[in-house]
Amino acid sequence: MTDTRPGIVICAWDAGESGWDPVEDLSGEPWNPNGARTVPVPSASPEALASTLSAHLSDRRCRALLLVGRTRSHEGFRLQMRAENRSLDGAARRDGVGPSVARATAPVAEMVRALKEAGLAADATSEAEDDAGSYLLYSVLSSLPDGADTPAVGLLRAPEKESDDAVQRAVKTAAQAMARHLAPLPRSRAI
């Protein structure tokens, strides 16, 4: 049978992040939001990860990306709405000809609303943090081709001291909110 569910890539960029585990039980199968299938991507070096994530999104069956990481500057969950054109160390521009800022394409307002409805403190921010998450968000967004069929790309930050259970719940809630905006794949793209 053909799987017409669009793919949503979920990636915790920090190798030490224990809050997001796509496999919940002994089945070895990753969790999937309603109406979509999860494509888990393990952490790697930021440069390699940017390339891997962009390759996944170039596959027309993958329609979304949720980056997951921590924030050191806030007490609640945050959805980062933009990223600046900065190198990984923040000392220079990442791309000499790219735009100064890239804006997230995920349904941020709906994601924040869903997180709040799940009982989690959450908001959206235009402030980037100087870390691999912001670097990855910019790298992926700036590599997307122009067009009306742009994938949903977002970055969810959990408070630094938040429990793994709360992070797991937040990732699932945000991914489910993203999945509600994804249309089933045409049969010609389904796997």
Score class of each variant (00 low, 15 high):
Y138N: 10
P159H: 04
R78N: 09
G16W: 04
Q176V: 10
D3S: 01
L88T: 13
T105P: 00
E84P: 00
G90E: 10
P42H: 14
A106N: 10
S51I: 08
W13N: 03
V153C: 02
W20T: 00
R94H: 14
M111Y: 07
L53H: 01
S188R: 12
P186E: 15
E84W: 11
T125P: 00
P145C: 08
T150C: 10
E127G: 08
A177Q: 02
E24C: 06
G7Q: 03
S27K: 02
D25H: 05
A102M: 15
Q168W: 00
A132Q: 03
E47H: 05
S188D: 12
A64W: 03
V108W: 05
L26E: 01
P151N: 13
E129Y: 01
P186I: 13
D131H: 02
W20I: 00
R5K: 13
A114N: 06
W20Q: 02
V101D: 02
D130V: 01
G96Y: 05
L144N: 05
A121L: 08
D25N: 10
V23E: 01
E24W: 06
N85K: 10
M111C: 08
E84R: 13
L53P: 03
R180E: 15
S73D: 14
S134Y: 02
K161L: 08
E17L: 13
E29V: 05
I191T: 15
N34E: 14
A177L: 05
S87I: 02
G154Q: 12
P22S: 03
V39S: 05
C62T: 13
A170L: 00
R86W: 03
M81E: 14
D131A: 02
W13D: 02
G19K: 04
A158S: 08
S163A: 12
D149I: 09
E127T: 15
R37C: 08
A48M: 06
A122I: 01
V112K: 12
M111W: 01
A190H: 07
D89E: 11
H74S: 15
L182N: 12
A114V: 07
I191G: 14
N85T: 13
P99G: 05
K172M: 11
E129S: 14
A48R: 09
E84G: 11
N85V: 11
R93H: 14
N34I: 14
P151M: 09
T125C: 07
G119C: 02
R189S: 08
Y138R: 07
I10K: 00
Q176R: 07
P107H: 11
D95E: 11
A166F: 06
R60K: 12
L88I: 14
G69Q: 10
P22C: 03
A55G: 07
S188V: 15
N85Y: 12
A128N: 09
A118E: 14
N85P: 08
S87P: 03
V101G: 04
S43P: 10
A83Q: 03
A91W: 14
S27C: 04
T173K: 04
G119Q: 06
L182R: 07
D131V: 09
R78G: 08
